[in-house]
Structures are given as C-alpha cells and as structure tokens.
C-alpha cells in the first residue's frame, strides 16, 4: 500500500516539478528575449502606447547605426573592455596561481601569516574601499588610463585562496616524482602542476574574465574620459543620460553580452566542475 501511494505521489510531484521548472525557465529567459526584441525595434515602437511581443518592423539598421554613430564610442569601449578583461584574466591566473601554489607547497616562515592576511581581506570586498583606492590611484596619475583600470585588479585574494585550496589537494606523489627528476618548485609548477590543472584554471579564468568584463564601479570611478570607457560605462552613461536612441542602446547591450554568453555556454562545464572540485562551497 505504502509503495503504491508513494509511486502515485511521486508521479504527481514529478509533474509539479516539471511545471515549476518550465515556468521558472521561461521567466529566466524572458529578459534575454526582450533584449533581443528591443534591439531590433524602431524607436517609435519602443515608446508606443502598446506592448509588442514582436517588433512591428524588424529594424536591422540599429546595428550599423550603432557603429556609425559618432556619439557612441562603441568600438573603442569594446576594445578597452577586451584589453582589460584579457590582461586581468592572464594576470590573475599567473599571479594568484603562483601565490596559491607557493602558499600550498613552499614551507616558509611567514606563510601562515600571509595566508591569514589574504583570507581576512577576502571578507572585505574591493568595492567597499573604492574611495581610498581612488585617492591612491589618482595620486599615481592613473585616472582615465588603462593602467589605472587594470593594475588594481591584478591580484585577487579570492583566486589566491581558491588556488591554494586546490593545490593542497593536488596529488603530492606526482610532484615528488618531478623533484626526483631534478625539477625545482618553478619547473614542477609549470611542467607538472599546471598541465594537470587545466580544468580548474579554466574555471577561475572564466569567472575572472566575466567579472572583469562586467565590472562597473571601479571603471566608473577611474574612466572619467570617454577614451577610457569600458563597454559597461558606455552603456550606463547612455542609459542614465538618455541621450541616444533607446533602440540603439539595446543593440549596444546585445553586442556587449553576445561574446560573453557564447563563451559562457562553451566553458560552463569547467565552471561547474571547478566549483565542485574546489569546495568553494564548504568541506
């Protein structure tokens, strides 16, 4: 009896679960749909007194208009965002990777103190200290420069922490074999450890790249000059100032997220795996 009831019940809950998932998935996809739709709408239809599921007229000229509009520094800001995201990702991987490995493996008098210092700063997000950081960076004369945008983000406590945790779990026997072969820490790291950790490196790399591409507060504070805008700052400026066509703004937003979404879909497996392997979520 109990078994029969539970079977029927599980079929009912199964259906309920699927309906909930489908509804939730639709809700999560609608914003993407609206973004695409609005990017292909005419300006007057976006401000019309009615809601349209589909553009009454598909306006493809928004795309060409976007790059032809001298008021929107689209190409330049995409380039800036790309440069910043790539350098920061490479920088974080190299610096935090080495630091994490050093903390995990190299016995050193202060290593515990250093590790605790890093862990303590984990809890204090960089965004909160943006005012003193701005004062520091402006003293260096780095306002509105790529240096000012990139260098403060090159070292990340969280990435260092995660790398250390990951390398602690790296099989020591392999490394010991490498030492016997005459490789030092440096050689072991690059020739043995890194090639065997590519999945994890990809996960941290993707997360860093996305974070850097989507960063807002710091580029807003530092990028005072139109030439140093990232794509997020360009979008935000035109969103809050309302000085360009709304349809072009949507097109700009679409252009700004498409490369990221593609990369994300492609690399998602690594992120998920990385999260599972590091135990960012505990253990």
């Amino acid at each position: 009896m109990a078994i029969v009831r539970s079977k029927r019940q599980s079929r009912v809950t199964g259906w309920a679960r699927y309906s909930a998932l489908v509804v939730a998935a639709l809700l999560f996809l609608i914003p993407f749909y609206l973004l695409i739709r609005s990017a292909f709408m005419r300006e007057q239809d976006l401000g019309s007194p009615d809601f349209h599921w589909l553009p009454p007229v598909w306006e493809t000229s928004n795309l060409t208009g976007l790059f032809d509009n001298p008021a929107i520094p689209m190409a330049r800001s995409l380039l800036n965002s790309g440069l910043i995201a790539v350098t920061q990702t490479v920088g974080v991987l190299v610096i935090s990777g080495l630091a994490g490995y050093g903390l995990a493996r190299i016995p050193y008098r202060w290593s515990n103190a250093v590790f605790y210092t890093i862990t303590a700063t984990l809890l204090i997000p960089a965004a909160v200290t943006f005012v003193p950081s701005f004062v520091l960076v402006s003293t260096l004369g780095w306002i509105s420069t790529l240096r000012g945008l990139i260098i403060p983000g090159l070292f990340q406590a969280l990435a260092t922490f995660l790398f250390r945790q990951f390398f602690l779990g790296f099989p020591k026997e392999i490394e010991e074999a490498a030492f016997i072969d005459g490789l030092g820490y440096w050689g072991t790291f690059w020739k043995i450890v890194v090639p065997n950790s590519m999945g994890f490196v990809a996960a941290i790399g993707t997360i860093t790249f996305i974070g850097s591409w989507n960063a807002f507060l710091w580029p807003l504070v530092i990028g005072r000059d139109q030439e140093s805008w990232t794509v997020q700052i360009a979008l935000s400026t035109f969103l809050t100032a309302q000085s360009v066509q709304v349809s072009q703004l949507f097109m700009a937003a679409l252009v700004a997220i498409v490369p990221l979404l593609l990369m994300f879909l492609f690399l998602q497996r690594w992120i998920v795996e990385g999260v599972e392997r590091t135990g960012i979520a505990g253990d």
Binding site: L98, A99, V114, T117, T129, S133, V135, L136, I151, F155
Partner: peptide
Amino acid sequence: LGANLTRRSLFALGGAAAVTGALAA
C-alpha cells in the same frame, strides 16, 4: 611595480592601500 612583480611588493600594495585609506580618511 615597475621593478618586479614580486609577491612581497604586491602584499605591500595591499598594506599600503589600507594605510592610505586610513590616512585619507
């Protein structure tokens, strides 16, 4: 930073930022 990106100088950066913050305040 210009000389070499040693781990120590980067940690000094963090410390300096904290000091500057407190000073600026």
